[in-house]
Amino acid sequence: MNKGLWRQWPLHLMILPGLIIVLIYSYWPMAGIVMAFQQFVPFKGLFGSKWIGLDNFEYVFALPDIGRVIWNTVFIAFMKIIGGLVVPITIALMLNEIRNALMKRGIQTLIYLPHFLSWVILGGIFIDILSPTTGILNQLLGLFGIEPIFFLGSNTWFPYTLVVTDIWKEFGFSTIVYLAALTSIDPSLYEAATVDGAGRWKQTWHVTLPGMVPIIILLSVLSLGNVLNAGFDQVFNLYSPMVYESGDILDTFIYRIGLEGMQYSVGTAIGLFKSVVSLIFIVVSYVLASKLANYRIF
């Protein structure tokens, strides 16, 4: 037996349990995608169900709601991507100006906290806060003479409520990433800028921002992969039939049709559409990231 291979067999043994889990629960479902081309009946299984080609896709794209759902998904996801870039960069730049370490850490701690609470908890909190009758936000708006707004029940407001609450939850996370990038900027650049007579604003503009450009490019390119991820957990815990028109997204649509409605094949077909489009965006974004920012996953 090859001596090298004999020596390395423990490595292959170690990886085996994890490999089995992934093969069963990630790769076997990929094989299950054939359901999308079948008239799947659970007791007949993958091999016994009738093959119907692209009929499920024809059915899906003829559904009256599908255009609305795709539009909602892209619109909400896109706004989240933009807000998820602008807000953390701004906050990171503001935090960078704070010299008091204790205060800086205190603020970081508080803004990072919502990231760790689930959308079940946060959904409960927002349903309470945003209620048109007892919600504290509408009470506050009332002080300024503004009529109560049904944030979670109005199709005008719902998508923006989703975007704002999502940014509220996640901006602390990205802020810390940007702050880490800021600390890696060479301090001598600031000294040089000061010698050249640059004030604080000019330093921010000519040293700090350019220093952040690589990480900004990297994170914005990588977020391309999320164009069809409008956030299932959040939408599922905040939406209701009243706002399906403006808030129903691909993932919630798949859940209702596929699992609740038990139209397994149709649900799988929509899921496949989403996975394939997402994969294309992810591959493009990784190619861009490796070209523009020299990024490697591992």
Partner: peptide, 9 residues
Amino acid sequence: LFSGGLIPW
């Protein structure tokens, strides 16, 4: 990067 989706899972 890619998954079978909710239903097959």
